[in-house]
Design a protein around this nucleic acid. Structure first.
Lengths: 184, 184
DNA sequence: GTCTATAATTCGATAGAC
DNA sequence: GTCTATCGAATTATAGAC
């Protein structure tokens, strides 16, 4: 069959995202991606150059943090918790990134950048204290990435079984304290 | 040089733990482990059969959860937080396991077993409520594994810079609420 | 107990025909 | 735009000499 360049590229990217998310970077082969996309392996090379560039294209994403300016001060933690769960379940690129960052130092570096540049400013804005903002952002990351790890990657049954509402109810107060609380 | 069987086995295991922890399962090669142990690759096969069995031997471990019966009720979260950080930094096998569980379904299964069998009973004992114990244990896992992920694997700077005391001060109350709190 | 040699795979990447 | 064919490298694993 004959497809357009754009169709081919898109189907390769889709297959790549699934494979990278399911198997991690090392275990994923260009051959497998090509087979999923029903195309020859050499086409993948033609469009993306090499495996690393294909990964970069598949893992490109944005946290899309919500605008919290209209949210009541005491609902910030809950709002953020709800947003993270939805965002995570909507975009496979996040899992691709987490799975890969664990065994790839370059990707871990990208993850550091993402959280520093997107979560850091939010923490400054919320806590009003630039001195502790970085730490607050880091704490939020530990809880949110920990949830993602246990729920979507390790699939610990009690964590998988929680509804969105359960997650917001339990993690909301935690994030609230990390972002705007006074102790520590 | 001529070494005893035990010496050889021990040095292979040590090298394997370091490699698996540093590079993950897929990236770690038997050849590299053998080189680290200053031995021929075929010796590794001789002693451990194959790569998978070598990994199983290197990742064998125990959470060694502390006895909390003598700890005041309101200090349980802090005690557990302190214990986890110390345990994590003392035993490389934990990082080996986490790094590998992320891209290996069999190992993820072992991780599920470990947390269910070791953290579950603790939650029952503490909360006194078998109905919610599994969920409480799961929540503790999200926060503790999230800390480990950000601090030891992704190495997010603000999380790495926290002292043991900082960790206990911030995460203690979180674990406390997950284990013995009433909301959710 | 240790090593050499090598079999058997698998993979990323390239060249080139159609 | 798509595919065949293949190279070169790396890896697990085995057989067997010393």
């Amino acid at each position: 069959m004959r497809r357009s360049s754009e169709d081919t590229k898109a189907s390769i990217l889709g297959a790549a995202r699934e494979r990278f998310a399911a198997d991690g970077y090392d275990r994923t082969t260009i051959r497998a991606i090509a087979a999923d996309a029903a195309i020859d392996p050499s086409m993948v090379m033609r469009y993306f150059g090499n495996k690393e560039k294909l990964f970069a294209a598949a893992a490109d994403f944005d946290l899309h943090l919500p605008d919290l300016s209209g949210v009541p001060e005491d609902r910030i933690g809950a709002t953020l918790a709800a947003h993270f769960v939805e965002r995570w379940e909507a975009d496979e690129a996040l899992m691709v990134l987490l799975r890969t960052a664990v065994t790839n130092e370059d990707v871990a570096g990208r993850m550091r950048e993402i959280f520093a540049s997107q979560l850091g400013p939010l923490a400054v804005k919320l806590s009003g204290d630039p001195a502790t903002a970085a730490r607050r952002a880091g704490l939020v990351a530990t809880q949110m990435l920990g949830l993602a790890l246990c729920r979507y990657v390790l699939r610990l049954p009690p964590v998988v079984e929680m509804t969105h509402q359960d997650v917001v109810g339990w993690l909301g107060p935690t994030l609230q304290r990390y972002l705007v609380g006074r102790d520590g």
